[in-house]
């Protein structure tokens, strides 16, 4: 079966255990999740989850429907497509000595990343971008020796006027 990477955005009520409910669902149904992030949305008491999942479209559709069955999940949208901005943040601590430091700094420049910490034997780099860009940067730096890597997982938003993940604010007025 044809599998591909899908990005789902779920608007959920900001209650304890919501992330647990979603994660437990993925585990139980055997859905393989690439990344899941959760944080505040533009609405009070509503959080925004971004889930990246690899699978056939039928499987991803099941993920979406099962997520929507959770009472705390208000809406789920599959935002996969060209009109979607997907970003992730990475912190990379790479070995750096006097002979390699400038080369690393050049690579960081090319990727429009930032150096946020310098030590005698390392550089810490902050980079944002889509998954491919961060993976390329990582691959370029690997030769120098990676000491630590932390990636946040993706957040996504549809470009321009389209608001595929937006929800009717009227329906939320009683949420506390």
């Amino acid at each position: 079966m044809l599998t591909s990477k899908h990005t789902l955005v779920a608007m959920v009520t900001d209650k304890p255990g919501v992330l647990n409910r979603a994660a437990s669902l993925f585990r139980r149904r055997g859905f393989n999740i690439d990344s899941i992030t959760v944080g505040h949305s533009e609405l009070p008491h509503v959080s925004r989850m971004t889930i990246v999942v690899v699978g056939s479209s039928a499987m991803v559709e099941q993920v979406r429907k099962q997520l929507e069955k959770l009472v705390d999940v208000i809406k789920v949208a599959d935002v996969t497509g060209e009109g979607t901005i997907i970003r992730e943040l990475a912190l990379i601590k790479v070995k750096a000595v006097s002979t390699t430091r400038s080369e690393i700094m050049q690579i960081v420049d090319i990727f429009r990343a930032k150096i946020v910490d310098v030590a005698a034997d390392s550089l810490t780099i902050e980079a944002t971008g889509d998954e491919d860009k961060l993976s390329s940067l990582y691959n370029m730096l690997r030769g120098f020796g990676i000491k630590e890597l932390a990636r946040t997982g993706c957040v996504a938003m549809v470009r321009g006027g389209a608001k595929s993940a937006a929800i009717d604010k009227e329906s939320l007025k009683d949420i506390q």
Partner: peptide, 13 residues
């Protein structure tokens, strides 16, 4: 104070 709610608000359901 006991107030029986007269309606239900479950936007996700």
């Amino acid at each position: 104070e006991f107030v029986y709610p007269d309606r239900i608000s479950l936007p996700g359901y």
